[in-house]
Design a binder for these strands. Structure first.
Lengths: 208, 208, 208, 208
DNA sequence: CGATAATCGAGACGGTACGTCGAGTCTTCAC
DNA sequence: GTGAAGACTCGACGTACCGTCTCGATTATCG
C-alpha cells in the first residue's frame, strides 16, 4: 500500500479507509473464485462496492494489488515456542503450508513471483511484504535455539548470514514445491521427515 | 503437444511439422522479449510465420503452449557421471540453475505453475513434460550412488519412494527459490554448500 | 456457369454433372435457411456432398454462385396467353410475385443487385441470366397485343425501345418494391389495380 | 439511432455526441470507397477516430449502422412547389435519382433491403427512417394537387390510402430499378416520360 | 458559512488481445 | 485431371479488460 507523503491533514475529502479493506478482501475473494489470470480489476471494484477510479488511485495495477492482498495472509506467521528447535521448525513448516493450502495464496503468490522475474520493483515489493517476514522467522528460530544451547553461537557473521539464506531457501522452497508443484500434502509426517533432514544436514555442515 | 489418433495416413493435407517447431521457437523468443504476461498468441503466430488458426489448431491456449515451449528447455538435463554422489548432485543443481537463468524459463515456468494451481489438466501436463524428467535424475543419481557403495541399498520400497520425493522437493524447491524468489545466483559455491547440507541430512536420516 | 473452352473431350476425369445440380440446389436451400449474408461456401459444399475445391473450380465466388442459383428460379417465367393484354400483364405480375415470395429469391436477388452496384461484371451477369428474360416478356406481350389489335404497331423503333424499357422498369420495379420494401402482398387485387394504372398511362402516353 | 431512456442526466460520463456524427460520416466514406460488402466496422471506427467498442455501444451491427448512415442522405428530400403536379413529380423523381446516384446510397441501400428480407426489426427500421419520408412526399404532393384543383378530393379514405401506396411503389420502384438494375440514367427526359405515364394512368384509373 | 479541493460512484472513452469463423488456396491420397 | 478431405494464410468478427477520462455529487479543511 502506498503511503501518501507526510499525510498529516490535507485539504479535500479524505480517502475512505474502509475502501482499502474492502478492496483487499474482494481481491482475495476473487482470487479464490477465479484465480489470478481471470481476476479483473473491474470485477474486484464491483465486489468491493467501489469505483474503478478508487482502486487505481491506490494501486497501480493488478500485480501490486495482489501482492498486498496476499501479503496480509502472511501476517499470521509467527514462531511459537514449542520447546525444541525441531518442534519449532515443524511448527513453522506447517503454518506455512496452511497458508499455501488456501486457494487465494496458491494462485496469487506464484503468479506475482512469475511476474517479478521481469519487474524488479515488484520483486522488491514481494521481498518487503512477504519474504522478509519468513526470513525473520529463520533468524528468530536460530537465535532461540542458540539461547537454548541447541546450536553454538555464531563466530563469523558473513558465514552466519550465508547459512541463514541457505536454510531459508531450502525451507521455503521445499514447502512451496511440495505443495504447489508436486501437489502433495504437507502434513505432520512430511514436516517431521523434512525437519530431520534439515537438522541432520545443519549438524553435519557445522562440524566441517 | 497432442498426439492425434495413431492414424498412419489420414485423408487430407497433413499438418506441417515445421509449424510446430517454428511456433515453439517463436514462443521462447517472445518469452525472452516480453515475458509471460505480455506474450500474445497473435504475436507468436506472426513471429512463427504462421496463422493464428494454425496455432489454435495445435494448442488450446497460452498455458499449454508455454508448457511445451519451456519443456523443451529441460530436455538438456542429464546426469553426467562426475565420480561421486556429491559431485553428481552439484552438477545437476548447476545444470538446473543454468536453465532457470534463461529468461524464457524464469518467466514461463512460474507462470504455468501458478496457473496449474487452478487447472488439474495443466498440472498433469507440467508433471509429465517437466517434473518427471527431473525426478528421474534423483532416482538415477541414487541408483548410481548405491552401485558405487556410497549409499546402502533400499530395504523398504515405500520408504525409498518417500525419500526420493523429499529429496526431489528439497533440491528443486531450493534451487528455484534461490534463483527466482531470493534472486541470488546459484553458483558453484552455493551448490557446494547446499549439497553438503543435503548429504549430511541424508546420512543423519538414514542412521535413524 | 462458365463454359470451358470447346470442351470436346479433354484428358483426365471429366467433371461430375451431378455436382453442379447438387451445388445449386444446396445453395438455394442454404439461402432459404440462412439468407445471403450467413450463407457460407463451406456450408454449401457440405450440403452438396462436395469438396470446397470442386465448388471453386466451377464458380469464382459467392456472388456468381448465387446469381446462377437464383437465375434458375426465373426459368419458370413465361407469357401464357390469357386473351387480353390486361390479363396477360396481370398474369406476369403474379408469376413474378410468386417467385419473389420464395425466400431464396428475396434474399439472394437483392443482395446480388446490391453487389452489382460496384461490380460491372456481376451486373452484366445478372442482366444476362435474370433481367433479360423478364424484358423478353415485355416485348413478347407487346407483340401479342399488337397482333390482337389492342396496341398500334410501332412506327419509331427508337421510341419503341424507349417505351419498352420504361414499361419494364415500372413493372419490375413496382412489383419488387411492393414485395420487398413495402412488404405488402402482391395479390390479384393489387395486380389488377396496377395493371389498370399501367394501361391507362400507356394509352394516354400513346395519344400524345 | 437508438434513443436512451428519457433520463435527463444519468450518472457517469455522457456519450460523446461528436462520435455519432463522425461514425456516420466515416460509414458513408467507407461505403463510397469500399461498398457494403467490403466495409468493416473496424475500419469505420478507425476512420472516425473512435474505438470499435464505442461503435458497438451505439449500433448493434453493420446493418443498423448503414441504415442510419444512408438515412441521413434522404433528409434532403423535399417537395418544392414547381407549379404543377407534373412538375412536382418530375422534381421529386430527379431528387430521388440524385441520391441514388451517390455511391454510398447505391451500395448501402440495396444491401440493407436485402438483409431486411430476413430481419423484421431491420425492415421496420428502414421503413421508419427511409421509406416513410418518401411516402410523405406522395401524400403531400397529392394534397397540394388537390388544393390546386388538379386532382379531385378524396371520397373513400381506404381507397385513397390504397392509391397512395400504389403510386409510392410505382414511383420508388421504377426509379430504383432504372437506376440500379437497368443501370440507365434517370434524367429529365426519362422523368418526363415516366411522369406522363403515371399521370395518364392516374387519370384513367380515377375515371373508373 | 461559503469557497475550495480531493474524493466518491458511474460509466463512456481509445486501445489491445482475445478466440472464432469464413474466404480462398494448397497439399495429400484415391479414383 | 477430378474428387474428397482437411490444413493452410489471411482478415474480420464481436467481446472483454485495460487504464484513463469526464461527469455530477459528496465531504472534508480553510478562509
Amino acid at each position: 500500500m502506498q503511503s501518501r507523503s507526510p499525510a498529516a491533514s490535507r485539504p479535500g475529502r479524505p480517502r475512505s479507509a474502509a475502501a482499502d479493506t474492502a478492496i483487499l478482501a474482494a481481491t482475495r475473494a476473487a482470487l479464490v473464485e477465479l484465480g489470478w489470470s481471470k481476476l479483473t480489476l473491474g470485477d474486484v471494484a464491483t465486489r468491493a462496492g467501489v469505483a474503478k477510479t478508487t482502486l487505481y488511485r491506490r494501486w497501480s495495477g493488478k500485480n501490486e494489488l495482489v501482492v498486498d492482498a496476499v501479503a496480509e495472509l502472511f501476517d499470521e506467521l509467527e514462531l511459537p515456542d514449542r520447546g525444541s528447535l525441531a518442534a519449532d521448525i515443524e511448527g513453522v513448516v506447517l503454518q506455512f503450508a496452511a497458508i499455501l493450502a488456501r486457494p487465494e495464496a496458491r494462485s496469487g503468490l506464484m503468479a506475482v513471483v512469475a511476474e517479478s522475474t521481469r519487474d524488479d520493483a515488484l520483486r522488491e515489493r514481494i521481498r518487503e511484504s512477504i519474504v522478509e517476514r519468513q526470513k525473520g522467522l529463520v533468524l528468530a528460530g536460530r537465535a532461540r535455539a542458540q539461547s537454548r544451547g541447541e546450536l553454538p553461537p555464531e563466530t563469523d557473521p558473513a558465514e552466519a548470514a550465508r547459512t541463514a539464506d541457505l536454510i531459508f531457501d531450502v525451507v521455503a522452497g521445499a514447502v512451496v514445491h511440495r505443495a504447489l508443484v508436486s501437489a502433495e500434502p504437507v502434513d505432520a509426517e512430511w514436516a517431521q521427515g523434512f525437519t530431520q533432514l534439515l537438522l541432520g544436514g545443519l549438524a553435519a555442515s557445522a562440524s566441517t
